[in-house]
Design a protein around this nucleic acid. Structure first.
Lengths: 193, 193
DNA sequence: CAAAATCAATACGCTTGCGTATGGCAGGCA
DNA sequence: TGCCTGCCATACGCAAGCGTATTGATTTTG
């Protein structure tokens, strides 16, 4: 796997945060395997020597980077939607968010592929649980009983997860127009009336 | 990642097929990374020397193993369902198949995670296209217009793909009873009336 | 039974990636 | 000015994995 990794220009002195940013970017572009110490160093225009001053181990970097990503996912994706009063509209808004905001979801897709890694799994578990609870609650408020709401939420979230996987192979070979139509149908099917 | 890999007992002489079987088993249990020459050799109770007599390279083994898996998926999953006359029932049957037959889907899940690997991608593309066409056609026969049928098929297939990913973290923490209820809702939502 | 073909062990070289050890250089502060 | 601390380079050691080369054993076949 040789993935094109955008090089970032110098910056005489680096901080831990710079390494975390680079880690997330590489993660999104090339998967967990691309988060390699020496590769990141090249990307940042330095050598390993720098890295091991800021972090004790590669794991520590991952930990820090993921923590940051998890917070940003919570605050910049979920939180804004929470303000939408109408539950039906809230679900629609989430589908739109999720279907149009790429960058953060690239990280999620990469993490999904490394779900058996002990350091990754808990992150996905927490994020998924939050999102699932969120959607379930919206369905409940929209009038569905507890079980039905949970099942619709499961279906919606599974479809989301599956879609970002399949999107990588351009499997649902769609143009923008078809995609919008798909999203409309998606919403129509899951939120009837 | 250390994954428990079941050891298989001797068998004085091995064939290429034995290596392919071991490759698929390891793939299902530990992902693409577990399909390593020396590791498979240990599993089969021999050394690398044997492997490189049967295959020129690791890639060649993967190729052969996946070809076999792809055929079996086509003949043992899709073909039997094709005989069901009623399209609605055909979709239901496919959902049941897919939601209850584990082994083959473990391989699929593993491949999904390695979708950026040039040797894996075409396999997933072919398999997904076949399945997607299959479901789309069933929805058409069930009376949906072309676009709607395609979208429902996409939704169903995405939900399937997402589910087998999430299942690995026991995310939709369900017992057998709840799972059956979920499948019923799943079918109910996608095939109304 | 002998020779040839088939299958396997051992030992090696090469690459990648993590982690360590140590030394060097710059800028702030005494 | 000179030194100390923060940041980085260089040079290792080590493990895992692929692939090669050579030799050895066992089966098959003439």
């Amino acid at each position: 796997m040789t993935v094109a990794i955008s090089k970032i220009e110098p910056k005489s002195r680096l901080s831990a945060a710079d390494w975390e940013d680079a880690a997330l970017a590489s993660l999104a572009e090339g998967g967990l395997g691309a988060v390699a110490v020496e590769s990141l160093a090249r990307r940042l225009g330095v050598t390993k020597g720098s890295f091991y001053w800021h972090f004790a181990t590669r794991e520590a970097l991952l930990q820090a980077a993921l923590e940051r990503w998890e917070r940003s996912d919570e605050h910049e994706v979920l939180a804004p939607i929470e303000t939408v009063a109408d539950p039906r509209e809230r679900i629609r808004e989430m589908v739109r968010q999720v279907s149009h905001k790429r960058p953060s979801h690239a990280v999620f897709a990469a993490l999904l592929k490394a779900i058996d890694q002990p350091s990754i799994r808990p992150v996905i578990e927490r994020v998924s649980q939050r999102r699932l609870d969120f959607v379930t609650e919206a369905f409940r408020q929209a009038g569905f009983d507890a079980v039905t709401a949970a099942n619709r939420a499961r279906l919606a979230y599974s479809a989301y997860v599956g879609f970002i996987q399949l999107a990588q192979i351009g499997q649902p070979r769609m143009n923008h127009e078809e995609f919008e139509a798909y999203i409309r149908d998606f919403i129509e099917i899951l939120i009837p009336h």
